[in-house]
């Protein structure tokens, strides 16, 4: 029973921590740019404020538009709850393996894009078209980099994959390094960060994610924003789980969980500082450079796969 309790605790933690993570990234970015920044809690304040605000719907909005925020939010949160943050063995982590997890995020994206097209503005359609196109190109690369790990672990279940990484001796595995770089590139693209998309931009013809949310207001907007924050945390935790899982608590005792929590937060903050530094240092790519960027990620992960067979598997 306690494991189910921890499952919920973990999911809740992800949910509550996500706005803080977003706040952390923007604060680090602000400091890097010699600004003071709005503070780590600002996303939380935004969400709270949006929840209490009235919703204004466009005349033409159909039920899809009102339905979409709930689908996007729940699909993202369910996906996040499957990713082990503290304990690798939780009953619900069997609900979806990595492929199903990617599909849940795809479901969220599907409805997000439909909502973008529902109002019938040029911006919404533009955002939907670009988001779907680029995510379609990111999908094979993501799958390929997961495959590099799965082929070693003979599994797509996150729990089994984590155990596999924990049980293998520490080796220099170039294929894993390639997969990691590819996965980082994809994570940046999927969460809509620089250099693929700029999360802070409005009214720019290069925007992707924001263009679909333009017509949202009030609680709907809050749910959408929250979902995208959860998504960032999800990808960060996924990368930690797949590549540096050391520290996860193997059984549910208090000390182990405290250690796991501390290490998780430490790893997350390292990852987010790296992200913030990259976002500060890099410029956004031209829109039609993005396919090349994703293509590079695909080639990298495919090279990882080939190298896995060439160097690491003794035939």
């Amino acid at each position: 029973m306690s494991s189910i309790f921890f499952q919920f605790l973990q999911a809740l933690l992800m949910l509550l921590l996500a706005p803080l993570a977003a706040g952390f990234i923007s604060t680090v970015k602000a400091r890097l740019q010699n600004r003071h920044g709005a503070g780590v809690l600002q996303p939380w304040r935004d969400i709270r404020k949006l929840f209490s605000k009235e919703v204004v719907l466009a005349d033409h909005a159909s039920w899809i538009f009102r339905f979409a925020p709930y689908v996007v939010f729940t699909a993202t949160v369910i996906a996040a709850s499957v990713v082990p943050a503290l304990l690798p063995d939780t009953p619900l982590s069997l609900t979806a393996d990595v492929i199903a997890l990617v599909a849940l995020l795809a479901l969220a994206r599907f409805f997000l894009s439909l909502a973008g097209m529902d109002i019938g503005t040029a911006f919404g359609g533009m955002g939907a078209s670009r988001e779907m196109t680029f995510s379609a190109l990111a999908e094979p690369a993501m799958l390929m980099s997961v495959f590099v790990l799965s082929l070693g672990a003979h599994s797509t279940n996150l729990t089994t994959m984590i155990h596999h990484v924990l049980s293998t001796p520490l080796l220099i595995q170039p294929s894993i390094a390639f997969a990691l770089v590819a996965m980082l590139m994809i994570a940046v693209a999927e969460t809509g960060r620089i250099p693929v998309d700029n999360p802070t931009t409005h009214l720019e013809l290069t925007m992707i994610h924001e263009a679909m949310l333009l017509e949202y207001s009030g609680r709907h907007l809050a749910l959408m924003e929250w979902a995208s924050m959860v998504k960032i945390l999800l990808f960060a935790t996924l990368i930690i789980d797949l590549f540096v899982p050391w520290g996860l608590s193997l059984d549910a005792n208090a000390a182990g969980i405290c250690l796991a929590l501390t290490l998780w937060l430490l790893k997350l903050s390292i990852l987010f500082v790296v992200l913030a530094v990259l976002e500060t240092g890099l410029a956004k790519l031209r829109l039609f450079e993005v396919p090349q960027y994703l293509g590079t990620a695909f080639v990298l992960s495919f090279l990882g796969l080939m190298i896995h067979y060439m160097l690491e598997v003794q035939l």
């Binding site: 170039p174 590079t296 190298i307 690491e312």
Partner: peptide, 21 residues
């Protein structure tokens, strides 16, 4: 041997990078 394998992987990567520039 691990290190040599790693370097081999990097060599392959560089060959691809040369092609893509």
């Amino acid at each position: 041997q691990q290190l040599i394998d790693g370097l081999a992987a990097l060599t392959l990567l560089i060959s691809f990078a040369l092609l893509a520039q």
